[in-house]
């Protein structure tokens, strides 16, 4: 959990690397949608047929699902269930945990198969883990996080948010 510190901060370079990993996975696994969420339900990146689904809800429900499953695992003395699979009539969802804190979701139909998805996910997960390690190293080297964009937030800024 503490690999990247309590707050997840993402920069251009890593964001692009993550997007390209997801892009490749999407193609290689013949998937409809691939997306990456953190365990708290924040969507990090997504690729594929995104118009037809509400990805924000998808992210939150996925995280809820994983959290509940983690709870079940602990209850029976397992550390975690690293893969979840839900099979539907048309579409299937493959959920796996990356580096203990991220959730990689692949949605696919009969144009792909569980075997293929498994195989491609394993590779993508390794690559994602590398990116995360680089992010952690970078953060450790730079020591301090950059100055928050909210450093000088005013009451007015906040009132403006709620003005519409």
């Amino acid at each position: 959990m503490s690999m990247l510190g309590p707050n997840l901060v993402m920069y251009e370079e890593e964001f692009e690397r993550i997007n390209s990993i997801l892009g490749r996975l999407w193609v290689d696994a013949n998937a409809k949608i691939v997306f990456l969420v953190d365990k708290n339900g924040q969507q990090i990146a997504a690729k594929g047929d995104l118009e037809k689904v509400d990805t924000t809800s998808l992210a939150s429900l996925t995280a809820g699902n994983v959290a509940a499953t983690d709870g079940l695992a602990r209850l029976i003395g397992e550390k975690e269930f690293s893969i979840l699979f839900h099979e539907g009539e048309r579409d299937n969802i493959h959920i796996s945990i990356v580096a203990q804190r991220l959730i990689l979701v692949v949605i696919f139909d009969e144009r792909s198969s569980l075997g293929l998805v498994r195989l491609r996910v394993r590779k993508a997960a390794q690559e994602l883990e590398e990116v995360l390690n680089d992010m952690a190293n970078k953060a450790a080297q730079q020591g301090q996080a950059p100055v928050s964009p909210f450093a000088e937030i005013t009451d007015e800024d906040i009132d403006n948010l709620f003005s519409e």
Partner: peptide
């Protein structure tokens, strides 16, 4: 845990 994305200039907070 807020999530600040400097690449897409977004911030997400959980309440």
């Amino acid at each position: 845990m807020s999530f600040i994305n400097y690449a897409s200039r977004e911030i997400n907070c959980k309440i």
